[in-house]
Simulated scan of single mutants.
Amino acid sequence: MKKSLIALAVLAASGAAMAQSSVTLYGVADAGVVKLAGDKTKMGGSTTMNNGNSRLGVRGIEDLGGGLKVGFNFETGLSLNDGATVASGNGFWARTAKMWIGGNWGTFQMGRTLTPSFYGVSAWELTGAANYSVVGNTYSWAGAGARNDSQFSYKTPDGLGGFSAEVGFIAKGNSATDQSKWDANVIYANGPIAASLAANKLSGGKANWALGGKYNFGSFAVAAGYHARRDGVRREGFSLGGQAQFGAFTVTADIARDRKNDAGKKYTNFVLEGKYALSKRTFVYVAGLRVDDKNNYGLGMRHNF
């Protein structure tokens, strides 16, 4: 009898804990046939011409009460070619390794994560931040890549009339270049309009930034942006694109044109993408990307779980 009471007490305690916290396993499976510039046609997993990198992640959240919550997110990349780990940095959890605490005052997080600049540009970029995004491949998400190591960041709460903002900081001792860095965005997303300003800067360098927006007419959307990469080799220009939806089929065309390029030639780059939704979580896609006079092609399928 005593043992039964103890078992029931343990089950009750674990049930209460489970009611207050949760852990979710999620991921992406993406593979197809790709033809990269200068390479042979082959199966592609986690390449430039896949819609996204295959990945496996785990995230958890605990309700601390009073509107306060704490959570974590770990994510690793993999290739469907051979099952090998695909690094987006150093280590197994190179895609994301962070923890956060948040409430009605906003969210504070620490770790390796996508940058505020990335979130700013992806708020209006037409392909959904696909690997073959002409914006990302030409101007590198406001000139700084998609991820920061050792980032402290604060994001405002939702419900500010469509506005939100995030600012991140990397201390000098945590930077691969031994330089401190700040990274920030301001986003407006309300109804058919999405717009943002994203900027970042290494200490001793010049600020990179991007300003852009999108208007969704329903079955058709247009987007435009201006991008300035000034830290290192300067590259500056604009992007302009449109997207049309016909039932389950979506077609996107996006162009990026250099106004300044210290590396030499001013390029006109573009991407053309077609997607067909098989369900809410699975779609097939075909895309062609031209970047700096190099042509790339991809045909594949993506499943989110």
Results as ranks from 00 to 15, higher is better:
Ile6Asn: 06
Leu8Ser: 14
Leu8Trp: 09
Ala12Tyr: 03
Ala12Thr: 13
Ala17Asp: 09
Ser22Gly: 14
Val23Ser: 03
Ala29Thr: 04
Gly32Trp: 09
Lys35Tyr: 06
Gly38Gln: 02
Gly38His: 05
Asp39Ser: 10
Thr41Ile: 14
Gly44Cys: 02
Ser46Lys: 01
Asn50Thr: 09
Gly52Leu: 08
Arg55Trp: 04
Ile61Glu: 15
Asp63Gly: 11
Asp63His: 05
Asp63Arg: 04
Leu64Ser: 02
Gly67Ser: 11
Gly67Lys: 12
Phe72Val: 12
Thr76Gly: 14
Gly77Tyr: 07
Gly77Gln: 01
Leu80Thr: 09
Ala87Thr: 06
Phe92His: 07
Phe92Met: 10
Trp93Leu: 13
Ala97Gly: 11
Trp100Tyr: 12
Trp100Thr: 01
Ile101Asn: 01
Gly106Phe: 08
Arg112Gly: 05
Thr113Asn: 12
Thr115Leu: 08
Thr115Ile: 03
Tyr119Glu: 12
Val121Trp: 05
Leu126Arg: 03
Leu126Cys: 11
Thr127Glu: 02
Gly128Asn: 01
Ala130Thr: 06
Val134Phe: 07
Tyr139Val: 10
Trp141Leu: 13
Ala144Phe: 13
Gly145Lys: 04
Arg147Phe: 15
Asp149Met: 05
Gln151Asp: 13
Tyr154Asp: 05
Gly161Ile: 13
Gly161Tyr: 12
Lys172Asp: 13
Thr177Ser: 14
Lys181Gln: 15
Trp182Ala: 02
Ala189Arg: 05
Asn190Gly: 06
Gly191Phe: 11
Pro192His: 06
Ile193Glu: 00
Ala195Leu: 10
Leu197Asp: 08
Ala198Ile: 07
Ala198Glu: 03
Asn200Thr: 15
Gly204Asn: 07
Gly204Gln: 09
Gly205Val: 05
Ala207Cys: 11
Gly213Asn: 07
Gly218Ser: 03
Tyr226His: 12
Tyr226Asn: 08
Ala228Gly: 07
Phe238Leu: 12
Ser239Trp: 07
Leu240Asn: 05
Gln243Phe: 06
Gln245Glu: 10
Gly247Asn: 04
Phe249Trp: 07
Val251Gln: 10
Thr252Ser: 07
Thr252Cys: 02
Ala256Tyr: 07
Asp262Pro: 06
Lys265Cys: 01
Tyr267Met: 01
Thr268Gln: 13
Thr268Met: 11
Phe270Asn: 12
Val271His: 05
Gly274Gln: 02
Lys275Gly: 02
Leu278Arg: 00
Arg281Phe: 00
Thr282Asn: 00
Phe283Arg: 00
Tyr285Trp: 03
Val291Asp: 06
Asp292Trp: 11
Asn295Trp: 08
Leu299Ala: 13
Asn304Ala: 12
Phe305Cys: 01
